[in-house]
Design a protein around this nucleic acid. Structure first.
Ligand code: FES
Ligand code: FES
Lengths: 149, 149
DNA sequence: ATAATAAAAGATATTTTTATCTTTTATAAG
DNA sequence: CTTATAAAAGATAAAAATATCTTTTATTAT
């Protein structure tokens, strides 16, 4: 098990890609995005539709259309994307699956999980959707699933 | 998405339960365990069979039989259970789902994920399967999914 | 030996997640 | 206003995770 669902991994890689394009005023078509982040095109379309409905990304139809981010959206913390896709179990739920995480009736690992959840929450709150545009543009980091080396 | 699969949550709760019983020399029947940790009995049986094959727990058949842990098993770090059930994607995989986590071709969140993965690994390596027996015996912590309050 | 007990194993079923296919709607350009 | 483009929406399909059912094997006590 990975930390995020596959759906969420695609979503994050996609918004990072769209963000970088948006920074230079470009819109991204679903075909292009899917190819650049190595994701199934039609499935990614569904994911982006969902993010669009939730207001985390936006799009226009028709020629010269595509997905893009407003400058406000570029400033949103990445945790918004994760919450939109995977919900907030990762941030508030009990690590051992108890119905609710509770100080009164904690699981054995409650304190340990609390610390880790806190770290994850902080990290995802402190990086913004557009925060990696520079590194992406410079090719210092990658969004492609399959390695080329 | 939670941090562990449901299967893994059941596995951890079960080994904690068996551990506490084992500490006082008792074996635990699958029926008893399932009831005490609120898990589907027959599914949990499969999970425990798997842990048994992998040598993390042991059992005897027949009357007075059941699952139990040797003193060596009680000392094993909990991470062994997680690895046996969920694999090690959580500890070594790329958080954004790239084929492999790599320093040379990192994803944008590589450093951030590395720190968090490290925290999780450390935490699960530093708690032992039998490490909560006292707190469990005293009723300070709970393994029951559904709250009674 | 026989019967009762309890886990192991194998087969099947259900649910959720992931992925694809098809049709519709909105937009822009000619 | 017609055509091309591209996302939105709805329906379906495939795969994986979760859960259950049935039969078998090992052990213990009588
Ligand atoms: S009760 Fe389990 S993490 Fe809080
Ligand atoms: S490359 Fe993504 S976590 Fe290392």
């Amino acid at each position: 098990m990975a930390i995020f669902s596959k759906t969420c991994e695609y979503a994050i890689r996609a918004v990072f890609y769209i963000a970088q394009k948006s920074a230079s005023g470009m819109k991204s078509g679903i075909k292009d995005i899917a190819a650049e982040i190595d994701s199934p095109e039609l499935y990614l379309a569904k994911i982006l539709q969902d993010l669009s409905r939730k207001g985390l990304i936006t799009s226009t139809k028709g020629p010269n259309g595509g997905f893009f981010l407003t400058s406000e959206m570029l400033e949103l913390p990445l945790i918004e994307v994760v919450k939109a896709v995977d919900g907030d179990a990762l941030f508030t739920g009990c690590g051992l699956g108890l119905k609710q995480c509770s100080e009164l009736h904690p699981c054995p690992l409650h304190n340990e999980f609390k610390a880790i959840r806190n770290d994850i929450t902080l990290m995802l709150s402190n990086v913004s959707i557009g925060g990696f545009n520079q590194e992406l543009a410079e090719g210092l980091v990658s969004l492609k699933k399959s390695k080329t080396d």
